[in-house]
């Protein structure tokens, strides 16, 4: 059994269950139909206790397990603060006392001074964890200074409150966000392959043309290497930033390819690839904000 490469039982079980929940809620829907809505109520994941999967103790998920969960979750781009809640409840006792969702805020390079970024802040029931292994361990009610509507599936808000992270909590948060990005990339690659199989031009599926096929092959290479970068990030506490950045940047590359492969549909709002792209571009901001 290879400890650092294969996910443990907790990770596999949780990822499988969450895949089923998300697939039941949004499986056949185009992302454009649910990006602005609430396709999955919090109670569905909360009642199952999936937000507590990382809480320290016997049978807690390892970081590798969280990567498995985040990659799976990322494939659906569901607007629900599951991943920040898992991290907050892993690192904060005050967050664990809440039954509902909890988010975190990180630095916001390039924004007004004193402003911090928090995904899903201002969404129903969401509170902000202020101490993740560092600082004062308490939660704060949502204090939204401004909304950032760029990524509808991440519901980003600016706030004046900053979550304090221990070095390890920050590292884990960055790895989990990177894993979510890789999940987005894997999903859009799969959609792009499906589109290239169905879409015909010159009486042939466009995926049979090498110009298109090789682009998708390169996207597959990027997804594979991005996933390997996550394994590296998990295993190398002193060297996490490089693989995390690689994973996120590669995922953005895959999203760009997906738009190109979808041709004239690729840059339409309704096709919806842009929701994944906006999601991953925003994850990159969050990863930078948490210090990696």
């Amino acid at each position: 059994m290879s400890v650092n490469i294969l996910a443990g039982e907790v990770g596999v079980v949780a990822a499988t269950a969450l895949r089923e929940l998300a697939a039941r809620a949004v499986g056949v829907l185009p992302v454009a139909e649910y990006a602005d809505g609430a396709p999955l109520p919090w109670s569905v994941v909360g009642d199952g206790g999936w937000d507590l999967v990382g809480v320290p103790g016997d049978g807690a998920a390892s970081l590798r397990d969280l990567v498995e969960i985040a990659q799976t979750w990322g494939e659906f781009c569901v607007p629900l603060p599951l991943l920040p809640t898992i991290l907050a409840k892993r690192w904060s006792a005050a967050a664990r006392e809440r039954t509902g969702p909890v988010t975190v805020s990180v630095a916001a390079p390039g924004r007004p001074p004193g402003r911090f970024l928090a995904p899903y802040l201002g969404e129903p029931e969401v509170v902000l964890a202020l101490g993740l292994g560092a600082g004062e361990d308490r939660v704060a009610p949502p204090a939204v200074a401004a909304r950032d509507g760029f990524a509808p599936t991440l519901r980003l808000a600016e706030t004046d409150l900053r979550s304090a992270f221990s070095a390890e909590a920050a590292r884990e948060q960055a790895v989990v966000w990177a894993a979510e990005a890789v999940g987005c990339a894997r999903r859009t690659l799969r959609d792009s392959v499906g589109y290239a199989r169905d879409r015909h031009q010159f009486d042939r599926p466009i995926g049979s043309f090498q110009a298109v096929k090789h682009r998708l092959a390169r996207a597959h290479e990027q997804v594979e290497l991005a996933e390997s970068a996550l394994l590296w990030a998990v295993a190398a506490p002193a060297d996490t930033a490089r693989p995390v950045r690689f994973a996120v940047d590669s995922s953005i590359g895959v999203l760009q390819t997906a738009i190109q492969v979808h041709g004239g549909m690729g840059f339409t709002w309704e096709m919806g690839i842009h929701f994944f792209l906006r999601h991953v571009l925003t994850l990159r901001e969050l990863v930078r904000g948490v210090g990696l």
Partner: peptide, 16 residues
């Protein structure tokens, strides 16, 4: 180029 055909055809399942 051939290996990328292999990736496209056999791993991704694209049409030939």
């Amino acid at each position: 180029e051939i290996q990328r055909n292999v990736i496209g055809d056999r791993i991704l399942g694209l049409p030939r």
